[in-house]
């Protein structure tokens, strides 16, 4: 029950493996024959460009994008809506959270071309400095942010979380799967856990959310 599998690479093997890894370190991706361009794609330098149309914060957008472009980069680099943040680019932090067709998602782990016809709401679409969304105002009042970098994602998530609770979507923190979830501290903290704040504003974010939840639940 306790035999360790090959307790370690021998020194020699480390070296050999090291050498082997050199060849494979940066995997070859030599230009292979590409399948014929499909759909509305066309060849262009740097990959295949696709047209995609979606609605962002109420305005219709039509973009011609390298298919590799994430929704996050489409927003930040192509539409210059830089309120949505890139914290990890791998779905590990939540800074890129936006609301697509009423649901919050990590925009870094979605290709822009996969969102044809979608309705996308970013932090800029929730409110502006002169006309704050109630959640934005609550974040300011409760000092629910510090460096500000995770903040747009936190706010988009917070808005969507209150919607999810209203819609009766259960969470890991729900005591019962059959009762309607409540907008209490435990529920909100569990549901917000996909939004990391390294400054550690969590306690204040929960209070900002509680205030908004109290107002409209």
């Amino acid at each position: 029950m306790s035999k360790e599998p090959d307790a370690g690479l021998s020194r020699r093997r480390v070296l050999a493996v090291g050498a082997a890894s050199l060849a494979t370190a940066l995997p070859a991706a030599r230009s292979e024959a590409q399948p014929a361009a499909a759909g509305n794609a066309s060849d262009s330098p740097g990959g295949l460009v696709h047209a995609v149309s979606f609605n962002v914060n109420g305005s219709e957008q039509r973009l011609d994008l390298d298919a590799r472009t994430t929704l996050l980069d489409a927003l930040r680099e192509h539409m210059r809506l830089t309120g949505t943040k890139k914290g990890c680019d791998h779905g590990q932090c939540g800074a890129c959270t936006v609301i697509v067709d009423g649901r919050r998602i990590n925009s870094c782990l979605s290709l822009a071309v996969m969102h044809e016809g979608a309705r996308i709401t970013t932090i800029e679409g929730l409110g502006t400095p002169d006309k704050l969304h109630p959640m934005q105002a609550a974040f300011i009042e409760h000092d629910a942010y510090q460096c500000g970098y995770c903040t747009p994602g936190q706010i988009c998530s917070a808005v969507a979380v209150l919607d999810e609770i209203r819609a009766g979507v259960p969470s890991h923190a729900s005591e019962s799967l059959l009762d309607r979830p409540q907008a209490n501290n435990t529920e909100m903290r569990e549901r917000m856990s996909g939004n990391i704040c390294r400054c550690g504003a969590y306690s204040n974010i929960a209070e900002a959310m509680a205030e908004v939840a109290g107002r409209d639940v």
Binding site: I105, N106, E164, H172
Partner: peptide, 23 residues
């Protein structure tokens, strides 16, 4: 699922984050 296969609902809810589960 919540009623008849509760462990499945629980397992899903224990995974990832709300954003990821939405996708």
């Amino acid at each position: 699922v919540r009623r008849d296969y509760a462990m499945l609902s629980r397992a899903l809810l224990a995974g990832a984050s709300g954003q990821l589960r939405n996708k």
